[in-house]
Design a protein around this nucleic acid. Structure first.
Lengths: 341, 341
DNA sequence: CATTTTTTGATTTACGTACATCAAAATTGG
DNA sequence: CCAATTTTGATGTACGTAAATCAAAAAATG
């Protein structure tokens, strides 16, 4: 049997109350006594029974998720996954709240972070907009002892405890290699469709993509990035226009959202052309396009895994526990027609 | 606040003891009374607090993992992951035991299953050898109320509650498409290296691979399967021999273990040839080969995820709880040199 | 050394559930 | 209707920890 507080009280030759004072960092214990207790804890290998402690404390973990108010399939999916987690709240002792802030608006995010900080939740998860003020606001939370994880888009250089999302540079590099290999040494132009160069995840994907393309597939030439604002209509317009004007295009990398428009443009303009297309995020639209051959590969991040991972990490940090790194690593899914879930 | 047993006792107008009798299916409750209590439970939406219940019961989950005694990197890795789970036993209230049985030996597995059944564990995970007797033995366990999950290799047609492993047909299909696309319409022969056609996962991978190759890449011709017994030496010999005799080989699919030998053969015999190679299982050897270009892609199943998933599912089944299907789906990892963990 | 302050002990209640015991009430059988 | 049986209630203890209270002991201060 694992040792209990009674065992360490007996081993240290002190009372239960004193053990409790040491364990919960309450005042009123002499230095030497505290050390006796800590030694007993180490010697017996005592670890507090979290379930029992949470029961006694009536503990719940109030968690806040801050998301951009973006109207695309990916964000809807993320939202749905958080709501699914809310449905499990009772069993997981969580009390999760979702707040939405305008997208691409650092100041709005900063204000919300300040509001949230005042509520002193057990943890905060946010889809970060990459700006110095946001970094400062996040660091402030961390400094106040509130665990913070970034979701989907990271905030490097900040003190956030964890990032629950994919390595976007690796994603871009992988996309480049897949495209290059699929094209098998062909020469031509590559169109890149992004949401916005203001968000870090898109910038990083482009960076990875451009770097591998340049180094390993010199026969391919990148056209200037098209910024579709993650909006299907804009994406449609941009891609239709590019395909109309330039018939040297042999491949397309869509690294953001709004793929519905991309797919429509491909079906209209590229029926007679052999284009190789790689897109991000598995949705009903990209899935159908993969199956009918309009898209050749989909890179995906599993929103459900990201949300569950963020919750696990926030709870663990709130309790000062270690996380299983391998479990919390969000993998880049590569989907071909054959391995769709 | 969520309702407690006290609340349902009050709502049903009975005593705590009666509620307890109903909840724990103890005898001595009249039918009408039992219904009153069950109505109150439904009306208030009561769900028993598992943590408190487990605390009161002093519950632990004795789990048994049955593995083949195979000496390859993958099985070593699987073993290590289970031992890592054992290290977390205290926090997870598990009591995990590993037993090894001779590989490819259905009778030995059946005997072990019977031994294990006699110990009445809370759950059993096994790497299944595909044989009718094993199916019967597994069904027997399930019939006795013991949750069973198959690990890595499934036992279709049995009553096992869950399979913690990848879809091997999809894996084979994916390998074929990757190889076909990487070869970009080239004509030639494909060598397939397997462990043994006696294990289901290898058969399924081959089946998926052959089917996509035949349908979608008719320019590629599969050579008869080489069975390397998951052994590096045998694999080396077989591949070196094939490469020496046949210079029409343009691609290799290694769907089993023993890749150390494959890689050695490639470095000796194929320095001057442009071979496209797809292999299974990320190990130190395949990782290095991917990075130096000897292998073009690695398909992988994450042993850590499989083990953690098996444990979660067994515990949930033991408690009669639902599992989050999306969380327990073991994904096929596709690694290129750019997205290695 | 007396007094104040700090440290420690002893004890109790609580969290939500499980389980056991004994008495009281209700039901059933004859 | 009485006795035997079944059903129900009341109560207590336990799991391992948190947290509070009050008294007792020890240490520090003058």
């Amino acid at each position: 049997m694992r040792p209990t507080v009674h065992d360490i009280a007996a081993a240290a030759g002190v009372s239960l109350a004193t053990v409790d004072r040491v364990l919960n960092r309450r005042p009123g214990v002499r230095h030497v006594t505290r050390e006796k207790v800590e030694t007993a804890i180490r010697d017996l290998g005592y670890v507090r029974d979290l379930a029992a402690a949470n029961l006694a404390k009536g503990r719940v973990y109030p968690l806040t998720f801050i998301l951009p108010a973006s109207d695309n399939s990916f964000m809807h999916g993320l939202n749905a996954e958080i709501r699914a987690a809310i449905a499990r709240s009772a069993a997981e002792r969580t009390d999760i709240r979702i707040v939405e802030v305008p997208a691409f608006d650092p100041q709005a995010l900063v204000r919300e972070l300040e509001t949230v900080a005042a509520e002193k939740p057990s943890g905060v998860a946010l889809v970060a907009t990459d700006a110095p003020d946001v970094r400062t606001a996040v660091d402030r939370l961390v400094h106040d002892g509130i665990p913070v994880v970034t979701l989907v888009s990271d905030l490097t250089g900040s003190l956030r405890h964890h990032y629950a999302g994919v390595d976007n540079i690796a994603a871009g590099r992988t996309a480049a290699r897949l495209l290059g290999r699929f094209l098998g040494g062909a020469k031509g132009e590559i169109a890149v469709l992004a949401g916005s160069m203001l968000v870090r995840d898109h910038r990083e994907r482009l960076e990875g993509f451009a770097s591998v393309t340049a180094q390993e597939f010199p026969a391919l030439h990148l056209l200037p990035v098209l910024e579709g604002r993650d909006d299907p209509e804009t994406a449609h317009m941009l891609i239709a226009d590019a395909l109309g004007k330039n018939d040297g295009i042999v491949g397309i990398y869509s690294l953001g959202a709004g793929n519905r428009g991309l797919i429509r443009a491909l079906k209209e303009k590229a029926v007679d052309r052999a284009l190789t297309v790689i897109a991000h995020e598995l949705t009903v639209h990209t899935r159908a396009a993969l199956l009918d051959g309009t898209i050749d590969a989909i890179l995906n991040q599993d929103a459900g895994h990201e949300v569950r991972s963020a919750i696990r990490v926030l709870k663990a940090k709130a309790d000062g526990l270690a996380v299983i790194d391998a479990q919390e690593r969000i993998r880049l899914d590569i989907f071909l027609k054959d391995n769709l879930p």
